[in-house]
């Protein structure tokens, strides 16, 4: 943060910068090990470490194993409830999606700034959320056309539509279908970005008001700090809810492709 200039930039936390110099060219893009890459790797490691608890595979689970089984069972139940028995086929993808987003969201909230670290939220980048949304949407398209062929287009004509309304309804339904990847990707990106900006702005209030004098600090800084505590709790909730929403919507979209309404 540009604290030395006296101005705190709440957007600085989203900047991507290489950690190591160097890298290589790939299709016109320079691939370097950035802070984003570091946090993606940390997410991977965290998820992997967490999952180790579930690999004990004991008949009577311990606390950790039970926790992991709670996560897998949650996704498993969601897929079965939304898609049916066939849903278990897609559970590994949705589970990976859910765990990646959840851990990336949570890791980005860890206040390692107090010990000089720079947390970075992988999912606050449209590139990441957009790609994940496109992957989900592609699975829906591939599964839909592979299973139903051109009959998949009947998804856009709900049952009981009057004949003269069909062209109009078809266009509306097609548009709402095509908007899905954007809403899916944007929702997570916006939720993460907004929360982190809000926290940084309030943190800026605390620092700047306290620097301006003890009176301002008590008048502005203290309420802002109190608000930050509450919003931090809310952000943890948002981190979980957004991961859940992403997984849930993906499962609902896959359901459309598998069962056609």
């Amino acid at each position: 943060m540009a604290a030395e200039s006296g101005k705190i930039d709440p957007m600085h936390q989203f900047e991507i910068a290489p950690i190591f110099n160097g890298g290589f060219e790939l299709a016109g893009q320079t691939i370097t090990f950035t802070n984003s890459a570091l946090w993606m790797l940390l997410t991977l490691v965290a998820v992997w470490v967490f999952m180790q608890g579930g690999m004990k595979r004991e008949l009577v689970p311990g606390r950790w194993q039970l926790m992991v089984e709670g996560f897998t069972g949650f996704i498993d139940d969601m897929m079965t409830a939304n898609i049916g028995a066939e849903g278990r086929k897609y559970a590994p993808y949705v589970f990976s999606l859910f765990m990646f987003i959840l851990f990336a969201n949570i890791l980005g909230l860890i206040p390692i700034g107090v010990i000089g670290g720079h947390p970075f939220t992988v999912t606050s980048h449209l590139t990441i959320t957009g790609v994940l949304a496109i992957v989900s949407f592609s699975i829906v398209l591939i599964v839909g056309f592979a299973r139903h062929g051109f009959h998949f287009f009947s998804l856009f004509v709900p049952h009981g539509t009057p004949l003269p309304m069909i062209p109009f309804i078809f266009v509306v339904e097609l548009l709402s279908f095509l908007v899905r990847p954007f809403s899916l990707g944007l929702r997570l990106f916006v939720a993460m970005t907004a929360g982190h900006i809000l926290l940084k702005v309030l943190a800026g209030f605390v620092i700047n008001s306290t620097n301006a004098g003890i009176g301002y600090g008590l008048l502005v800084g203290l309420p802002s700090l109190t608000l930050m505590v509450g919003i931090s709790a809310l952000e943890i909730l948002v981190a979980v809810v957004q991961a859940y929403v992403f997984a849930l919507l993906t499962s609902l979209y896959i359901n459309d492709a598998v069962n056609l309404h």
């Binding site: 890459a37 993606m40 790797l41 990976s96």
Partner: peptide, 20 residues
């Protein structure tokens, strides 16, 4: 940065998908 982000996302999410 999209290339770099994509590159690392493919690696990490790919590992999560295939290994986990």
């Amino acid at each position: 940065t999209y290339g770099s982000q994509l590159f690392w996302l493919v690696i990490t999410f790919g590992l999560i998908y295939f290994v986990i």
